[in-house]
Computed example of a mutant assay.
Amino acid sequence: MKLNVSLSARNTLKGKVVDIKKGQTTSHIKIDIGNSQILTASITNEAVDELALKIGDDAWGIIKASDVIVAK
């Protein structure tokens, strides 16, 4: 089922899935968001299956965080 919803998250990055590494319970998804930038997300294997994610798919990285830590 697809939902047409609005999000409270303000950081949305569209890209293409370039890699999926499945572990025992969690997958690491790499999304190319352009300009040689890769966003990596850790999501459950169940979420990968429900979204039917595969390499080459268009996907959104949606970031909702209350804290951002910067180090140098």
Score class of each variant (00 low, 15 high):
2 K>M: 08
2 K>R: 13
3 L>Y: 13
3 L>F: 14
4 N>M: 14
4 N>F: 09
5 V>R: 15
6 S>R: 14
7 L>V: 12
9 A>L: 08
9 A>Q: 12
10 R>F: 07
10 R>S: 07
16 K>E: 00
16 K>Q: 04
17 V>Q: 01
17 V>A: 01
18 V>F: 00
18 V>D: 00
18 V>Y: 00
21 K>L: 11
21 K>D: 07
22 K>W: 05
22 K>N: 09
23 G>N: 08
24 Q>P: 14
24 Q>D: 15
25 T>N: 15
27 S>M: 07
29 I>V: 14
29 I>Q: 00
30 K>V: 04
30 K>D: 06
31 I>L: 02
33 I>T: 02
34 G>N: 13
35 N>D: 15
36 S>V: 06
37 Q>W: 04
40 T>V: 10
42 S>N: 07
43 I>Q: 04
44 T>I: 03
44 T>S: 08
47 A>Q: 10
48 V>I: 13
51 L>G: 05
51 L>Q: 11
51 L>V: 12
56 G>V: 03
56 G>N: 05
57 D>T: 08
57 D>R: 03
58 D>Y: 06
60 W>D: 14
60 W>L: 15
61 G>K: 00
61 G>I: 06
62 I>D: 05
62 I>V: 15
64 K>Y: 10
66 S>A: 10
69 I>R: 11
70 V>N: 08
